[in-house]
Nucleic acid binder design. Structure first.
Lengths: 199, 199
DNA sequence: TGTACATCAGTGAACGCGCGTTCACTGATGTAC
DNA sequence: TGTACATCAGTGAACGCGCGTTCACTGATGTAC
């Protein structure tokens, strides 16, 4: 895997890599992570499968890139939402709202990160750091609303609680489990958010 | 697919079917639902794959049986827990506790029902009825703790809230997402249960 | 109790499929003189 | 500005794999007389 860092060839490489990512996400969106196939992507791009090995060392390598890209994208989304205001309560609301939009917009991408683990695939260590980066803005906003002793620990517990509650709604919504029930996911999500802010 | 309903042959058939189910669960436990393979099961049982078509019409048919069996088992577990006491609050605790034991004991079985949907597979309509049967004991216990107007609707909302909160913890726990965090799933679960009982 | 027959569990060969991955190669593209 | 060379994107054939599923068959087991 050669890698010139600039020039027209480098530009072209980046273009192809991006196109592969796009097709990969489309595949994941409709068949989940286990449906990801280099051969199918190559076919969709009008190429042969071996050509893709110029760009990715293996299928799992591509999957790792996608997982990390998802983590990074969510981290940036969450950070941007938190940066839009200085008020801690508004920050929590903004981050939660951004999280929901991000999850509902591409359910399979959300599930790739927080759903059932892909069998036989383990995420790289970098994923853990990124997960913490996603966690951080929520925690610092919640911490800013607290005073008194053991503030750090209490804000951590509170963030975990908020996070699991929101995930409870989002994962069931993404998996379609509310479809056969008389439940409005958006309303439920708002209530769960409120329940933590009020505690 | 012939089916005598009694006699030695019927008994033998049931025995083989059960053995297939056992191997199938073992496979799901270690590779998830998409790792379910008739050929692999046959091999483990010292048979050839076509033999299994005497017992199951197709791979998806077996998967459907497993899904329904999981639903049924959970429904019975939950109902039995609720039946152990008459006090509504104790019932909610008992059902929630039974749910957690059931989920933690076989995480992949829990995720087969409530996790990321298996790509290309849709559960039979009967699953929806069973899901409601699982839901019912919680709702009637929570309803018994309420008084006043719109009790039915309020208890439904409350049950949904409890259910999503517990699922938030269980799904993250089953997927191993707490492994890299300083979180005690059992404690968190207890807190989430308490949060609804106190509301 | 013994024999003839029907039932049915299981085999073995074969099908087509899609997958990841390798390898030697062709031919276009960019670069250095 | 033009030519020679090196780089490298992409091809085509091939590999071995495991999968679900079919089909004609063998041989054991249960049943009816």
């Amino acid at each position: 895997m050669p890698q010139p860092t600039d020039g027209p060839r480098a530009r072209y490489r980046e273009q192809v890599r991006t196109e592969v990512h796009d097709h990969a996400w489309a595949q994941i969106a409709e068949a989940g992570a286990s449906g990801l196939s280099l051969k199918a992507i190559a076919q969709q791009m009008g190429m042969t499968a071996p050509a893709l090995y110029r760009y990715f060392a293996s299928r799992d390598d591509l999957l790792t890139e996608l997982v990390l890209a998802a983590y990074r994208d969510l981290a940036e989304t969450v950070e941007a939402a938190a940066a839009r205001t200085g008020d801690p309560t508004r920050q929590v609301r903004a981050v939660s709202g951004a999280l929901r939009v991000w999850a509902v917009q591409a359910p399979q991408r959300y599930l790739l990160i927080y759903g059932t683990p892909v069998p036989g695939y383990t995420a790289p260590p970098e994923a853990t750091e990124l997960a913490q980066r996603i966690f951080a803005p929520l925690q610092s906003a919640l911490a800013a609303r607290l005073t008194g002793a053991r503030r750090e620990r209490r804000s951590f517990d509170l963030t975990v609680r908020l996070w699991t509650r929101l995930h409870g709604v989002l994962s069931l919504e993404a998996a379609g489990h509310f479809d056969t029930m008389d439940v409005e996911p958006a309303t439920l999500f708002a209530h769960e958010l409120a329940s933590v802010l009020e505690s």
